[in-house]
Amino acid sequence: MRPAQLLAAVVALSSVTAAWPDMFDHTNAISPVKNVIYGRQDNSESTEPSKTAEPKSSATDGKPEKTEDPKETNSGSASATATGKDKASQTGKASGTASATKSKSKSIAPDKPAGGIQMITPEAIAGPQYYKIGDWVTFAWNYTSLLVTPKAIDIMATCTKNQATYTLAVNQSVEETGRILWDTSKDKDSNNPLLTEMYTLLVYDSESDVTAIPSPGHLGSANSFRFGLYQPQKYVPWAEFECANCNGAMGTLTLNALFITCATTFGSLLYFAYSFGAF
């Protein structure tokens, strides 16, 4: 080998030898061999030593922390417990009251009849009743179809002749058997004096009205009993008695009308009998 060639080979070998360590240097960031052979390593962890949390001081400004007083804690717990019990008790009472009220309320079917009265004084079989104005009159009755008892009742007597209403009792307590005593002498000389006429007894709920539509099971306006009142006349001997509707002229006219009616009826019978060949 020539000296020139030998020198060139030595220079080339020395260049390769000088560059060879850099190819495997791990600290060289631009070395491609490092990345290929060893791969990229992520050194994200801090090299600084981790700091440990210092324990908090149990005192602030040299004063110890204030701890909860067990008495106050127990008192608060007891108060909360008592409050909870009170609320539970009140809720229970309110719920119980509401349940009791709801259980007491009645549900009445709409097809049930309204309440009324049935007279026992006078009895229903006694027939029409007439009372003298100025006397005491007694009425008594039982309730029928009554499912809701009214708190009180009003009792009236009405007359269609003078369109007057006479108060017998107001806000009378309700009993199993109703009863009223009426002193007719008090209404004898009132602004609307009692007449010799027929009257109707009214018994109805004080919280309702006479013209109110009766509800099922509730007391309606009981107005089925009618009675008569009359004004007594002075005694007149028979010989002095005169009938305004029984004079002679009136009697003659009545007899004539009766005779004509009988004659017309008899003639009609004869005509029909002859027409059918009875003669």
Rank of each mutant, 00 (worst) to 15 (best):
M1W: 08
L13E: 11
S14N: 11
V16T: 10
V16D: 06
T17P: 03
P21A: 00
N28D: 13
P32E: 09
I37P: 03
D42C: 13
D42H: 15
E45H: 11
P49K: 06
K51Y: 00
S58H: 04
A59G: 01
G62I: 00
K63H: 07
K66F: 01
T67Q: 02
D69K: 01
P70S: 02
E72S: 03
G76E: 07
A82Q: 07
T83C: 10
S89W: 11
A94T: 08
S95W: 06
T97E: 13
S99V: 09
A100F: 09
S107K: 12
P110V: 03
K112R: 11
K112M: 09
G115H: 02
G116C: 04
I120L: 06
P122H: 01
G127D: 02
N142D: 13
N142L: 12
Y143I: 01
S145W: 12
I153M: 01
I153T: 04
I155R: 01
A157V: 12
T165E: 08
Y166W: 06
Y166N: 03
T167F: 04
V170K: 11
N171Q: 09
Q172L: 05
Q172M: 05
E176S: 12
T177S: 05
R179H: 11
R179E: 05
I180N: 05
L181V: 12
W182I: 03
S185A: 08
K186S: 12
K186M: 10
D189P: 01
S190Y: 04
S190N: 08
P193M: 01
E197R: 00
Y199I: 05
Y204H: 04
A212N: 04
G217M: 04
G217Q: 02
S221R: 03
F225M: 07
F227I: 04
G228D: 04
P232K: 02
Q233R: 08
Q233I: 07
K234G: 14
P237I: 06
A239C: 06
E242C: 10
N245K: 13
N245S: 14
N245R: 10
C246R: 05
C246W: 05
C246Y: 07
G248K: 13
L255M: 10
N256D: 10
L258E: 09
T261M: 07
T261C: 06
A263W: 07
T264F: 09
G267F: 14
L269M: 14
L270Q: 12
Y271H: 15
F272G: 10
A278F: 15
A278Q: 14
F279R: 12
